[in-house]
Amino acid sequence: MKRLYLCFLLTAVACQPSKNDEKDQPNAYRDLLIDRMIWKKSEVANPQEKPTNRHWFTLTNTSETYLYRQIEVRFDYFDSKYHKISSSKTTIDKALGPREALSLGEIEDGPVNPTAHSATVTVVKAKSERAKPD
């Protein structure tokens, strides 16, 4: 019986998470949440003008530890059958502390591909640093 108890005890100790858990490391892709995303084509008054891509979204830092800045995002554009037709990247030059949200106003992203039907926004990378405690 003692051997069985010792076996269970060793198994329980071995299954404990290590102090270098993955969440202890900064990861912008995991920690930065994009929601309330809107994509529109700009209105044009002159037929010779091309409409541009316009994006609005909220960026939320879900980390309790890390501040992120110089956040690089990628805009992907899709046709009516959801095939990716183009992409572009931009950097948001703002700092976002732990558990903070930032509503981003209009971000203009170049001319619209005439076959574009939808768009997404994805976090690519960001500079991180451990936030100073209050």
Rank of each mutant, 00 (worst) to 15 (best):
I85Q: 03
L4S: 09
T58I: 11
G105M: 05
V13L: 15
T91P: 03
N20F: 14
L67T: 01
L67V: 01
E106F: 03
M1L: 12
V123L: 09
T122A: 14
K23C: 09
V121F: 12
K19L: 12
L4T: 09
I92L: 14
F57K: 02
R69V: 02
T11D: 09
Y5S: 05
I85A: 04
T11M: 13
Y82N: 13
F75I: 06
R74W: 13
S86M: 07
R3K: 09
H117N: 09
L6P: 00
M37A: 15
P111M: 08
T115F: 11
D93L: 02
W56N: 10
D79F: 14
Q70R: 04
A101M: 11
L102I: 01
S18L: 10
F57N: 04
I92M: 08
I71H: 01
G105Q: 11
I92N: 02
E22R: 03
E49V: 00
P111E: 13
T120E: 12
T120I: 08
R30T: 07
L32S: 01
A131L: 00
E72H: 04
A95V: 08
Q70E: 12
F78A: 03
E129M: 04
G105R: 08
N113S: 04
A126L: 06
F75Q: 01
T91V: 15
A119E: 00
D134Y: 09
K23R: 12
A126M: 04
A119L: 04
D76G: 08
D93Y: 05
R130V: 02
K41A: 10
W39A: 06
P51M: 11
A12Y: 13
N20A: 11
A131N: 01
A126F: 05
M37V: 14
N27Q: 08
N46S: 13
A116S: 07
A14C: 07
V112F: 03
W56G: 05
Y66S: 00
F57Q: 03
V73Y: 03
A95N: 12
G105W: 10
I34T: 12
A101C: 07
E72T: 09
L6V: 13
K84L: 13
M1D: 05
P114H: 10
G97D: 01
T115Q: 09
Q16W: 11
A14I: 00
F8A: 06
P17A: 13
H55A: 10
M37N: 12
P51V: 07
H117K: 07
N27L: 05
H83Y: 11
K50P: 01
T52L: 13
M37F: 15
T11F: 14
K89M: 14
